[in-house]
Deep mutational scan, measured.
Amino acid sequence: DWREIAKLAEEALKKQQPVTVNGQTFNDPNEIKKLLETAQKAI
């Protein structure tokens, strides 16, 4: 669910920690931002 992904990505950016989505881990803040943008577009 994109809403859940957006929430996870936002928290990861705030806490500056990696986030795992669908078994894929994102460590890079730039990648997390991209993930968040993608999720927000999909909602």
Results as ranks from 00 to 15, higher is better:
33 K>Q: 14
39 A>F: 03
30 N>P: 06
3 R>V: 14
40 Q>R: 15
26 F>H: 04
10 E>I: 13
21 V>P: 01
9 A>R: 00
23 G>E: 03
16 Q>P: 05
41 K>G: 08
39 A>T: 03
38 T>S: 12
10 E>W: 10
42 A>T: 06
43 I>V: 10
27 N>C: 04
32 I>G: 00
38 T>C: 11
4 E>S: 07
5 I>Q: 02
19 V>R: 00
25 T>K: 08
37 E>C: 05
32 I>T: 02
16 Q>T: 06
32 I>L: 07
35 L>H: 01
20 T>K: 08
27 N>H: 11
14 K>M: 14
17 Q>K: 10
27 N>E: 08
39 A>R: 01
21 V>K: 02
29 P>H: 09
42 A>N: 13
21 V>N: 00
34 K>V: 12
42 A>E: 12
11 E>W: 07
18 P>Y: 04
23 G>S: 05
26 F>P: 00
7 K>R: 15
31 E>K: 05
35 L>E: 01
17 Q>M: 13
34 K>E: 11
31 E>Q: 10
11 E>R: 07
28 D>K: 07
18 P>A: 13
43 I>E: 05
3 R>Q: 13
22 N>G: 09
18 P>F: 06
14 K>L: 15
19 V>T: 03
3 R>P: 12
34 K>M: 08
24 Q>V: 15
10 E>A: 09
2 W>F: 05
11 E>H: 07
25 T>M: 09
28 D>H: 09
18 P>V: 06
40 Q>S: 08
33 K>S: 08
37 E>M: 06
12 A>W: 02
25 T>V: 14
4 E>G: 06
5 I>F: 04
22 N>R: 11
6 A>T: 06
19 V>W: 02
2 W>R: 02
14 K>I: 13
35 L>C: 03
21 V>H: 05
27 N>T: 09
30 N>R: 15
10 E>S: 09
19 V>K: 00
41 K>D: 07
29 P>N: 06
23 G>H: 05
37 E>A: 08
17 Q>F: 11
5 I>A: 03
18 P>E: 06
36 L>S: 02
20 T>E: 07
20 T>P: 01
29 P>I: 12
13 L>G: 02
36 L>V: 04
26 F>R: 01
34 K>W: 09
9 A>Q: 00
8 L>R: 09
41 K>W: 05
40 Q>P: 02
39 A>I: 09
7 K>N: 09
37 E>K: 06
7 K>D: 07
41 K>F: 04
42 A>Y: 14
8 L>A: 12
12 A>E: 01
33 K>G: 07
18 P>I: 06
33 K>C: 06
9 A>D: 00
17 Q>N: 07
29 P>T: 09
23 G>P: 01
4 E>P: 02
15 K>S: 14
14 K>Q: 12
16 Q>R: 14
30 N>D: 11
17 Q>A: 09
15 K>L: 13
4 E>L: 14
21 V>D: 00
37 E>T: 07
19 V>I: 14
5 I>E: 01
5 I>G: 00
28 D>S: 10
23 G>W: 03
28 D>V: 03
26 F>S: 01
39 A>S: 04
29 P>A: 10
32 I>C: 02
37 E>D: 11
12 A>K: 01
38 T>R: 15
40 Q>Y: 15
41 K>Y: 06
5 I>Y: 03
3 R>K: 14
12 A>G: 09
40 Q>F: 05
5 I>W: 05
17 Q>L: 12
8 L>K: 10
31 E>H: 05
40 Q>I: 15
3 R>L: 13
33 K>A: 13
25 T>S: 06
24 Q>D: 04
30 N>L: 14
15 K>A: 08
10 E>N: 07
28 D>N: 10
10 E>M: 14
40 Q>K: 15
9 A>E: 00
20 T>F: 10
32 I>R: 00
12 A>T: 00
29 P>Q: 10
21 V>R: 01
43 I>M: 10
14 K>A: 14
36 L>K: 02
2 W>H: 04
38 T>Q: 14
18 P>M: 07
20 T>L: 07
10 E>Y: 11
20 T>I: 13
39 A>K: 02
15 K>G: 09
38 T>P: 02
1 D>F: 15
7 K>T: 09
15 K>Y: 13
12 A>P: 00
41 K>T: 11
4 E>A: 08
6 A>F: 14
16 Q>L: 07
19 V>D: 01
22 N>P: 02
17 Q>E: 09
14 K>D: 08
9 A>M: 09
36 L>A: 03
37 E>I: 08
10 E>C: 15
35 L>N: 00
1 D>I: 10
37 E>P: 00
25 T>R: 06
27 N>S: 15
4 E>K: 11
24 Q>L: 13
17 Q>D: 05
15 K>H: 14
35 L>M: 06
18 P>K: 07
43 I>A: 06
10 E>K: 09
38 T>V: 13
23 G>Q: 04
20 T>W: 07
2 W>E: 02
41 K>M: 11
31 E>C: 06
36 L>P: 01
4 E>Q: 11
34 K>F: 07
14 K>R: 13
25 T>I: 08
7 K>L: 11
30 N>T: 12
9 A>F: 08
7 K>A: 07
33 K>I: 13
15 K>D: 07
16 Q>K: 13
20 T>A: 06
21 V>I: 15
40 Q>M: 14
42 A>H: 15
33 K>N: 06
37 E>W: 06
4 E>D: 10
41 K>S: 11
42 A>R: 10
2 W>Q: 03
27 N>I: 12
6 A>K: 09
43 I>D: 04
7 K>E: 07
38 T>I: 13
38 T>F: 15
11 E>G: 05
34 K>Q: 12
6 A>I: 13
12 A>M: 03
17 Q>S: 12
5 I>L: 07
7 K>P: 00
3 R>A: 12
4 E>R: 09
14 K>C: 10
12 A>Y: 02
39 A>P: 01
21 V>F: 11
9 A>C: 11
11 E>F: 03
5 I>P: 01
7 K>G: 06
21 V>G: 01
7 K>I: 12
28 D>P: 06
16 Q>N: 15
38 T>Y: 09
18 P>R: 06
22 N>C: 12
